[in-house]
Design a binder for these strands. Structure first.
Lengths: 144, 144
DNA sequence: CTGTATCCAGTTGGATACTG
DNA sequence: CAGTATCCAACTGGATACAG
């Protein structure tokens, strides 16, 4: 990956096409409706199936199972069965899953720091479309 | 947000429930099929509609329009029209959009660093289900 | 050039019932 | 307890045609 372009203001890091491809794949996982909540819960340590179900508000049994399978398939968590009666299954982040917490926290922090800015942007955009911008003779006008 | 729990190994940062809520919202945006590519392209500077279309392989006109509208609504980019014939429209990241590049790059770097690990996990999981783990008498056995 | 409108197939995820 | 199976409504996104 080429992360450094010098022709840019403030040597801003940039994603590139190849990098996006790999990133799209993990976004297909953690970008779904429930993965983030599961990862966040397991960040506090191993949990059993129903602990996760109770801890994640609104998740259905079906989606919990499916999402856990997906994360397991990606090698982000392990599934350990205790062949007892009643059965018990523990889910736990793998070392790989743990390393994902860094990037994820980066996003979480950004989201929290900027959620009001985004809400404000929504408000402006929704009440009769975003301050429209036109450019005439090279001069930019923003609607009032 | 409570980011520091001391009862955890290596003071790992952790997302919490409230934090996840805000993060889910931005994942609903950048987690979709095309936003990441648009953000990545605009990280190199302003682009017009058809520049984006040509630069992002496979995107349809419809999805480019819709995705740009979503990003604009979130305040991540601006849309500037040049009322000429033929018309010209420039899209450019806002200051807010720029700040998102940090967290996004964090994910992109993680994805690139670990894509082979994930592929390997897929391979193992798919060829007759992930090394199954059971725990008997407190001892964990992994299938061979 | 930069869109909008329509149609339609595929996917996602919720509700519910059933099982070892 | 920890799933699986089935059904179904809603959403996502692609193809295509048309417009200012």
């Amino acid at each position: 990956m080429s992360l450094s372009h010098i022709d840019l203001p403030k040597d801003m890091p940039q994603p590139d096409a190849e990098g996006c491809q790999a990133t799209r794949e993990i976004l297909d996982r953690i970008g779904d409706k429930w993965s983030l909540y599961i990862i966040a819960t397991l960040a506090n340590g191993a949990r059993r199936f129903n602990e996760l179900k109770r801890g994640i508000d609104g998740i259905s049994q079906r989606m919990l199972t499916l999402t856990l399978r997906g994360l397991e398939r990606d090698g982000l968590l392990t599934r350990t069965m205790y062949p007892t009666i009643p059965p018990r299954v523990d889910y736990e982040l793998t070392a790989l899953g743990m390393t994902l917490l860094g990037p994820v926290m980066s996003l979480v922090n950004w989201a929290n720091a900027n959620k009001s800015a985004i809400s404000e942007a929504h408000r402006r955009f929704d009440e009769e479309s975003e301050p429209e911008r036109i450019s005439v003779q090279g001069v930019i006008y923003q609607r009032r």
